[in-house]
């Protein structure tokens, strides 16, 4: 048991060394799925990830804003990313999660279909957003290339920006 523990600790410290070696050119992201696409946001923008629970509808807002919910005493807006991205709404499943993102003082919860994993990706492997969606208005920060797939990286500040 203790040997195993040592191994793990060693492994971790090795990893940590790796990280510090290349801290500058590695971005840590959290990946999630909405519809058929995989998206990611910087891990530091995420305050927490929670299982779904009840929320309260708020009138006179676009349909993608489901309402507000109680996060340990704070009232936080809840946004359905499926609806925001123009997809059909889907019933929540066991894999549905709320991702609470924060940018400065702005906080909001986002409903996503499923989490994938924490991703380390080298900066050199992140390309700019495709030309067609370029401009200041896009919520796409860039496109991360991995061995077998590409991931759309989203701008958290744009997600948290009120545009209605």
């Amino acid at each position: 048991m203790s040997d195993k523990l040592k191994q793990i600790i060693n492994k971790q410290s090795e990893q940590q060394n790796d990280i510090s070696d290349q801290l500058d050119d590695v971005v840590q992201l959290v990946g999630f799925v909405i519809g058929d696409e995989e998206y990611a946001v910087p891990i530091l923008a995420i305050q927490e990830i929670i299982k779904p629970f009840t929320w309260t509808r708020v009138p006179q807002v676009p349909t993608y804003i489901l309402g507000v919910f109680n996060l340990r005493g704070a009232v936080i807006p809840l946004i359905d990313l499926r609806a925001k991205f123009g997809l059909q709404t889907k019933k929540q499943s066991d894999e549905t999660r709320f991702i609470v993102m924060r940018d400065g003082d702005d906080v909001a919860g986002f409903v996503i279909d499923r989490l994938t994993m924490a991703i380390r990706i080298k900066k050199v492997n992140i390309g700019p957003a495709p030309d067609t969606v370029n401009g200041d208005d896009t919520i796409i920060d860039g496109v991360g290339k991995q061995e077998d797939k590409i991931i759309t990286i989203l701008k958290v500040n744009k997600l948290l920006e009120r545009n209605f």
Binding site: T56, V58, G67, V68, F69, G73, P77, D105
Partner: peptide, 26 residues
């Protein structure tokens, strides 16, 4: 409690409160 910057200015809603059951009431 305030609804925060994101939802401010909704006509007819002055804010929100958290009820005994943990739910939010406008």
């Amino acid at each position: 409690k305030s609804l925060g910057d994101y939802l401010k200015g909704i006509e007819g809603v002055a804010g929100a409160t958290i009820r005994g059951d943990g739910g939010v009431t406008l």
